[in-house]
Amino acid sequence: MSALIELLKTKQNRLCSVFFSAGFPKLEDTATIIKELSTNGVDFIEVGLPYSDPLADGTTIQYSSAVALKNGINLDVIFEQLKSVKKENTAPLVLMGYLNQVLKFGEEKFCESCRECGIETVILPDLPMIEYENHYKALFASYGISNVFLITPQTSDERIRKIDEMTEAFIYVVASSSITGAKGGISDGQIAYFERIKAMNLKSKLIVGFGISNKETFDTACDYMNGAIIGSAFINFLDEKGVAAIPEFTKGILA
C-alpha cells in the first residue's frame, strides 16, 4: 500500500498539503522545499510539473510555471531532483501536471520514472475519467500509481459516487467553480457545498483545494473535510520571502 494511502488511514483530520512548482523560485530549490515542508508538519506535498499552457491555473501558478521553465526545469530534471530526496524519507509526494507532458515524455517511461522516485499518486486535471478508464487505469495500476480525481460544485451526485468508487487515495474537492488562485475567504455557498459532499458519506478521504490561502480558510475547510491543499498562497510567499522562511509559512497555517 502506498505511503499516502497509509497516512490517510491513520490521520483523518487537518491533513495539510502544500503545492509548489518544481524549479521555482530557483531550479535547484525543489529538494529543499520538499525537505522543509516535510520537517515542518506538512502531511503530503504536491509537486507541480511546470507547463507552458496550464489551463486550470490562475496567474500565480502560471507565473511560477513560467519562471521554472525559464530556469530550465523539465521532467528529466524533476525526476533527478525527486530521486535525490527519495532516501530522506520525506512526506509522500504527489505529482500534478498536464496530460500532454506525460504523453510526450512517454506514458510508460513516466510511470517508470515515478516508480524510481517513489511516486505513487498523480493528479492530471485534463485527464478525464473516461480517458483514464479506457487508456490509463491498467497502466497506472501496473506501476502502483493511483490517480486523483477532482470534483467541483457542478459535479452531479451520480458522478461523485462513481469517482468515489474509483478513488484509491483521496478526492480533490475543488473549493469553487474557478481556476487556482489564492482567495480571501470561504462563502456560505461553499460551505453548503462542503456540507452536501460530507453528507454523501463517501468512502474516500476528501481534501479541499483551489483558493485555500491562510489559516482561516484552512481551518474552515478542515471543519468539513479531511484536509486542505494550499498552492498559490505558498507560491506567493516563496516569491516574497524565499525558501528559508518556509517554517514561518507552515507555522502560520498549522499553529
Binding site: 521553465l69 507532458q101 504523453l103
Partner: peptide, 21 residues
C-alpha cells in the same frame, strides 16, 4: 507537430521534447 493534447483535443501539435507548446 507530433501527437499531443491542446485545448481539450488530441491532435497534431507543435511542441518541444517535453511537450511544452
Amino acid at each position: 507537430g507530433e501527437v499531443g493534447v491542446i485545448h481539450g483535443s488530441k491532435t497534431i501539435l507543435m511542441q518541444d521534447e517535453y511537450g511544452q507548446i
